[in-house]
Design a protein around this nucleic acid. Structure first.
Length: 490
RNA sequence: GGUCGGAUGGCCGAGUGGCUAGGCACAGGUCUGCAAAACCUCUUACACCGGUUCGAAUCCGGUUCCGACCUCCA
């Protein structure tokens, strides 16, 4: 059996993955910055790392999965209110940043739940780990790799680069960064306090209108963008853990900064494997506010968006995302989503069919080969598109058996059901949709099917067709088979 | 400008040198009172130009386009 191979951005190669501590995996993934409702871009990473976690658990490893919530930083007068206005308002009318962060955290998790993304083992908030971050900054300061400047603390990239390789993850060359950063970076706030344009903030002095701020040895302020991940991952997973994940857009400067901070403070790269997923585009273009093509997850689910022809369910989204490899860009379009939706329906129908199959005395086809193929695909850098292709082949075989063209004995049938359960539900984390149908609905539908069967027996086709058509309008599809009729949501 | 990654059949999308991924759409067929569903068939597409090789979508070089990052970003 081949080993589990995972692409490591650090080495830009596929490598055999084994947990450093036998049987136990530590994984940290950069979570959302909760300053707005989750959009489609926020869905791919969570789905990928959920699948990675599920797969590793299926290998028998226990996974501690940490995903942070970034709730510090901006949140400065979200509605553009001036300071005066803010101060004059009654306290309860003021924007309370924690409340804003909480509501977006809830919105994020609601979307995750719908997509059947399991909650992490630990979901630490940056605001709850200010002390750890301050301690880490002090450690870096004590090593002479950071400096204080006007109430802020900056990481000294030039000093760090003397003994370390700054840029090892992103492939940036420090000299070029030093040379090129000049022009564009000048306009940024706070540049004049830095020794070098590439230095990044570990701690930022809070301006008066900055509502979220904490006391520190350097005065009131708030932590820099990269330090939270370093501090929290070290706290919950140790100074070095197995996997650090995130989007490719975080490669630089965020993850490069994390590596630098951790190497400075702890002397090691925090993660053995760095795993990055690619971006999502819409009709071939990147999502951007200026292009007005950003789609919120909830918009996709409701279909309430100019670019969407119809709603698409959370499972359609999950299925769609998994049909592309995580390191490829993935393009959203109505055509592509509709194709995914159709395929998903076919897959689910095959599962229902499989559950109703009766065993034959002997098997005319194998199922073990598919099981093997799915396992191989997953071990090959999480080749979920290939797993799905194999599951479609599984569906084809199930349908052949259902049509009486092939047979499965009890063992083969059990094996078939087990395969689908393992890979479709457990590893890919798919869920049946429409499973919210209660028993009353099922019974009522059976009454209608019985009436229609009677009408057909009486050759009253006007009536039987009317039942079928009206149910279709109501969103239920009737399927006539040899052994009677069944229904599904269309 | 720098760094990195792409260009695959009508659409999406796998493909880690030889063994035609898969889905959707279209078309033909089986089945059916008619449909739908299901099943079968739809028998090779890889930006361009060179090169390496017995053999290249896959490796090397060049060209043209596209994208991400370099500034908050999943």
């Amino acid at each position: 059996m081949s080993k589990f191979q995972l692409y490591n951005t650090l080495t830009r190669k596929l490598e055999d993955f084994e947990p450093a501590v036998s049987g136990r995996v530590g994984m940290y993934v950069c979570g959302p910055t909760v300053y707005g409702p989750p959009h489609l871009g926020h869905t791919r990473g969570p789905i990928l790392f959920d699948v990675l976690r599920r797969f590793m658990e299926q290998q028998g490893w226990s996974v501690r999965f940490v995903k942070n919530i970034t709730d510090v930083g901006h949140l400065v007068g979200d509605g553009d209110e001036g300071e005066d206005k803010l101060q004059k308002q009654a306290r309860l009318e003021q924007i309370e940043p924690m409340e804003v962060a909480q509501s977006y955290t809830d919105a994020y998790n609601a979307v995750m739940d719908k997509m059947n993304v399991r909650r992490p083992s630990i979901e630490p908030k940056a605001s709850g780990h200010i002390i750890e971050q301050i301690e880490m900054i002090q450690t870096i300061l004590s090593k002479g790799l950071a400096y204080e400047s006007k109430g802020s603390v900056y990481f000294d990239v030039a000093a760090y680069a003397k003994d370390h390789h700054y840029g090892e993850l992103s492939g940036r060359v420090i000299e070029e960064l030093m040379a090129g950063a000049g022009e564009q970076a000048r306009s940024l706030e706070g540049q004049e306090e830095k020794r070098n344009a590439n230095d990044f903030a570990l701690w930022k002095k809070a301006s008066p209108e900055h509502i979220m701020q904490w006391s520190s040895p350097w005065g009131k302020g708030y932590p820099g963008w990269h330090i939270e991940c370093s501090a929290m991952s070290a706290k919950y997973l140790g100074t070095q853990f197995d996997i650090h994940g995130g989007g490719m857009d975080l490669l630089f400067p965020h993850h490069e900064g994390e590596i630098a901070q951790s190497c400075a403070a702890h002397g090691v790269n925090p993660a053995r494997f760095w795993v990055h997923h690619n971006m999502i585009t819409i009709n071939g273009q990147k999502m951007a506010k200026s292009l007005n093509n950003g789609i919120l997850a909830e918009d996709l689910f409701s279909g309430n968006h100019a670019l969407l022809a119809q709603p698409y369910s959370p499972m359609t989204l999950r299925f769609f995302v998994l049909q592309a490899h995580y390191r490829s860009t993935l393009d959203f379009s109505n055509d592509a989503l509709q194709a995914a939706q159709k395929g998903l329906q076919r897959m689910q129908a095959a599962w229902k069919t499989a559950q109703g199959l009766k065993a034959s005395a002997s098997s005319s086809l194998e199922m073990a080969d598919l099981h093997q193929a799915c396992a191989e695909a997953m071990r090959n850098d999480l080749a979920t598109p290939q797993v799905i292709a194999h599951l479609f082949e599984w569906a084809r075989r199930i349908n052949l058996v259902n049509d009486g063209r092939e047979t499965l004995d009890q063992a083969g049938l059990d094996q078939a059901l087990e395969l689908f359960r393992t890979y479709y539900f457990e590893v890919l984390g798919m869920q049946l949709e429409g499973s919210g149908d209660d028993q009353g609905l099922v019974s009522a539908m059976q009454v209608l099917l019985d009436l229609r069967a009677q009408a057909k027996a009486d050759k009253n086709y006007a009536l039987s067709d009317s039942i079928r058509d009206r149910l279709a309008e109501a969103g239920f599809q009737i399927k006539d088979g040899k052994d009677g009729s069944s229904w599904s949501r269309s």
